[in-house]
Write a protein that binds this DNA or RNA. Structure first.
Length: 253
DNA sequence: CGTCTTTGACCGGCGC
DNA sequence: GCGCCGGTCAAAGACG
């Protein structure tokens, strides 16, 4: 599959949407290897890594790197102290570096798809036993507008951004750093595996996600996010705090 | 006791 | 109008 870029649709950048994965899972398509953080000590690499960290911190809302650190200091900090010991393995570096503009588009996210197209794409991916897995997303525009609201008058056709991606994992549930409450499960046509519906448990957050397995390859989990979290990711904060403490320590010099 | 999952019922949109 | 389907609700139960 190729990168699924919708043509004319708006492209959503969703910082903080996929900041953290602790479940051992791998992106299915065009998976970029983790950055070789320790092998390259060049300034450019280090400063861009710092930018990635800054992106991640700002995405979560309540972290700041020491403002008075010079770029050189930040670069030195990143180059000399960040290597593997300090980099939490659960951080999704592909997403971080992609947010910082260091990588191409993430492997299976589907930016630019309108919600019904994303849903249709996911449905096609599930239903089709044919060849092109995700290309159906860009190709099939024929998705009819299905019911968006459930029973209690959810009439608004909210155009929340929706992102779907696939991971190869034995676990259905990816720990993405947020807490989710399951509120439904439905059998999927032509698939032995049901689709599960989750809602973010944060009071003010309205983000939902759907999780289902591909019928054709049950080792692949398709996760569809709808909406953007309006609160920090606590687990990412925990993951980044050692780095930030170290940077703050360095800022004393 | 609070939180979460399970599961059948229900709702609304769509095609025929 | 009817049935299908995706999505949601909410009661009941499980769990720590």
């Amino acid at each position: 599959m190729e990168n699924l870029q919708g043509g004319d649709d708006e492209t959503h950048a969703l910082p903080g949407l996929f900041p953290y994965f602790s479940v051992p899972s791998t992106p299915v398509l065009d998976a970029a290897p983790p950055p070789s953080l320790s092998s390259d000590g060049s300034n450019q690499h280090s400063t861009t890594l710092t930018a990635a960290l800054q992106q991640a911190a700002s995405a979560c809302g309540n972290l700041q790197l020491p403002p008075h650190l010079s770029p050189d200091q930040l670069a030195a900090a990143a180059a000399t102290t960040l290597p593997p010991m300090i980099l939490p393995p659960m951080v999704d570096w592909s997403s971080l570096l992609q947010q910082a503009g260091l990588m191409g588009p993430p492997p299976v996210m589907m930016p630019g798809l309108q919600q019904q197209q994303a849903a249709a794409a996911a449905a096609v991916q599930l239903d089709q036993s044919g060849e092109n897995d995700g290309e159906a997303a860009s190709g099939s525009g024929g998705g009819k507008e299905k019911a968006k609201g459930g029973r209690s008058g959810n009439k608004k056709k909210a155009s929340k951004p929706r992102f779907a991606f696939q991971t190869r994992s034995a676990n259905d549930i990816l720990d993405d750093g947020y807490r989710w409450r399951k509120y439904g499960q439905k059998a999927v046509k032509n698939s032995a595996h049901p689709r599960s519906y989750y809602r973010c448990t944060h009071h003010t957050c309205n983000v939902k996600k759907q999780v289902q397995r591909l019928a054709k390859d049950t080792s692949i989990v398709v996760t569809t996010y709808e909406g953007v979290h309006n609160h920090p990711c606590e687990k990412l904060m925990e993951a980044l705090s050692p780095i930030l403490k170290q940077l703050q320590f360095l800022s004393q010099f």
